[in-house]
Design a protein around this nucleic acid. Structure first.
Lengths: 185, 185
DNA sequence: TATGCAACATACATAGGTGTATGGTGCTTT
DNA sequence: AAAGCACCATACACCTATGTATGTTGCATA
């Protein structure tokens, strides 16, 4: 029962909440106003139009996720264990928000552009991890892409919670990715 | 300028076309009728309601894609080369329809269920390929999952056409997946 | 040739969304 | 204490969608 006046950021946070729970189809003024216990008057006070609001939501998400990317880049102490840890976490937690954003990006060019930027940065982190793990630079990029695609593909599975690998299975994958000479087995 | 009467299948095909081009938000009676140069009278003659139509569209897609899966399972002559070929094609062609279906599946449980079934079958094909390529059965399943996730993740990239690996890069991946002893390099 | 049904068109009631114009209320600031 | 602004409510015009009820047309068939 918040009685304090709403800020522009409150609207954006609520947008991410609804986006996560119901998808981008829920990013409309009327339903959002109802969920915040106000009328659309508040919405059109903080935003010019729906599309203006949508671009603000994308910016909000971009900022939020680019911060997490920088954090991930820092946390690389031992590259081998870092890669394993990264895969362990990324192949387990179900990220509904990311799911919704990517679904949205298939019908909204502005969202697609923002997602592309985030993707590029994240793949760069994975690539650096592989290189510092001993993988040749030429092979590191495609392998990083493979790993990133797999991470995205997994969270795009219909029931992401059921798409989980065991620790041993993930470690096998991590070992594969750090392999230096292929074809001698 | 088709003047012949429309059939139920004509509606479903048009649905897939619009789904591919504009996403599941375009699967509504009024816009579809306009794109077919008829009124909604035709729509409600062939389908009871919108949700009835939607389930019919999912069934239509399920049939269509399960046929392609069986084809892929047959085409496995030399498993090593078959895996390479599979990766070459799946990591190149941009499949907009699959993209739209998966975006739809994030907000429609019925679609999610259909997608899950198709996924299960496809992963089975990939797993069988790896096993017949010499990979231990215990390692084949997670590796097949990884490959399939990567394939889905790639086509979910904002600009799938730009997310392409070269032949050499793909072959390196294929070699990795067929590796039998990891950690000796 | 009369009938009957498949394949649409038309019209209506209803619902939910967008923008915009305008009014009200309380806090702040001079 | 008066002005002004931030924040929100209200009301209106408009659009687009769904269902449903009821014509209309043409072809097949008895």
């Amino acid at each position: 029962m918040e009685t304090s006046p709403l800020t522009r950021e409150d609207w954006l946070n609520q947008a991410l909440t609804e986006l996560k729970a119901r998808g981008h189809g829920a990013l409309k003024a009327q339903p959002l106003a109802k969920s915040l216990n106000v009328t659309r008057g508040s919405f059109y006070h903080h935003f010019d139009s729906l599309s203006d609001f949508h671009t603000a939501v994308i910016d909000h998400w971009s900022r939020q996720s680019s911060g997490q990317i920088i954090q991930a880049a820092q946390a690389a102490a031992d590259p081998c264990k870092a890669l394993d840890d990264l895969l362990q976490t990324t192949f387990r937690s179900g990220q509904a928000l990311e799911r919704a954003i990517r679904a949205w990006s298939t019908v909204q060019p502005l969202v697609a552009k923002a997602v592309a930027t985030v993707d590029h940065d994240r793949i760069g982190v994975a690539e650096a991890l592989l290189i510092r793990g001993g993988v040749a630079a030429i092979k590191a990029k495609p392998r990083a892409q493979l790993l990133y695609w797999a991470a995205i593909g997994r969270l795009m599975m219909p029931y992401p919670a059921e798409s989980v690998l065991s620790s041993a299975e993930i470690s096998d994958i991590a070992g594969l990715m750090l392999e230096t000479d292929v074809g001698k087995g």
